[in-house]
């Protein structure tokens, strides 16, 4: 009885403390009291966060802090992990994505994802981009052609590959592959694009290109990016969330997080004292 009271009190406090400080009221995703367990171990502790529309939100934090795990909740990729258990809610358009009647395939079309390592399919460049559309049942040549071109232009790859769309996607360079994967996700015109350390496997030049691309894409998409490169987060994001040991420590607009962090731990991490 007493414990329960304490817990509820803490939650209230937590809610107040971690209330998103975004300057906008337009949210795409809203996470409410999310707890995630791998078997018996808790990986995310009572996370609440609201992701603003058409902005870039960065998750930073040391390795193992749960930032990728949280990201993978947004399109329910954690469903693939047998031992993973989640409670709490994530709302898109006031609909909880963990509800039983949610079509996961449709959710993933609305919330696209790009992984750490480029993972193009062993198919042609064209087929890689058309993959999601074909799965939706689009098979008309002209529609596909238009969508592929649009997606490749959107991922700033069109000029480099327009003459060899029939060649294997595996033959591209790492940076090109990553942009191909972004084009593949963009072809479905998602609302949210989740980027899980998209440039960590790339060289600095390819990495810079991806950053540029992210900056351009926020016009159209809401972007959530996980990175452990703080300069990158500072450069490209509008909002930054700092996570540590499964807790969301601080969330706010990037400038205030990096210049005037409220939490000691955030400040320590940003200044490189740990992590």
């Amino acid at each position: 009885m007493n414990g329960a009271l304490e817990k509820s009190h803490a939650m209230q406090l937590g809610d107040i403390r971690r209330a998103p400080m975004a300057a906008t009221d337009d949210y795409v995703l809203s996470v409410e009291n999310l707890n995630l367990f791998y078997g018996g171990a808790q990986a995310l502790n009572d996370i609440s966060i609201k992701i603003p529309r058409n902005r870039v939100t960065a998750f930073i934090g040391p390795s193992g802090c749960g930032k990728s795990t949280l990201l993978r909740c947004f399109n329910r990729m954690n469903d693939l992990v047998d031992i993973c258990r989640i409670d709490g809610r994530i709302l898109i358009d006031r609909k909880n994505i963990f509800d039983k009647d949610v079509n996961v395939a449709l959710l993933r079309r609305r919330v696209g994802m790009v992984f750490q390592k480029p993972n193009p399919f062993p198919k042609s460049i064209y087929e890689n981009v058309a993959y999601g559309l074909r799965i939706m049942g689009v098979n008309e040549k002209s529609t596909l052609d238009d969508a592929v071109e649009k997606a490749l232009r959107g991922a700033a790859l069109w000029d480099e590959v327009k003459d060899r769309l029939g060649e294997s996607g595996m033959g591209l360079s790492g940076g090109q592959q990553q942009r191909l994967v972004i084009a593949r996700a963009v072809a479905l015109e998602p609302e949210v694009l989740l980027l899980d350390e998209p440039s960590s496997a790339l060289d600095p030049i390819a990495s810079a290109k991806i950053e540029e691309l992210v900056y351009e894409m926020k016009e159209k998409y809401t972007i959530v990016i996980v990175t452990h490169n703080m300069q990158q987060a500072a450069r490209i994001s509008d909002y930054t969330a700092f996570m540590y040991m499964g807790d969301l420590i601080e969330f706010g607009d990037t400038d205030s997080i990096f210049i005037t962090p409220k939490e000691q731990r955030t400040s320590d991490y940003i200044t490189g004292r740990f992590g």
Binding site: L80, F115, N119, P122, Y131, I135, M136, A185
Partner: peptide, 10 residues
């Protein structure tokens, strides 16, 4: 590769 496909709504 499997995750990439699933993430595209397959």
């Amino acid at each position: 590769i499997r995750e990439g496909s699933l993430a595209l709504g397959a």
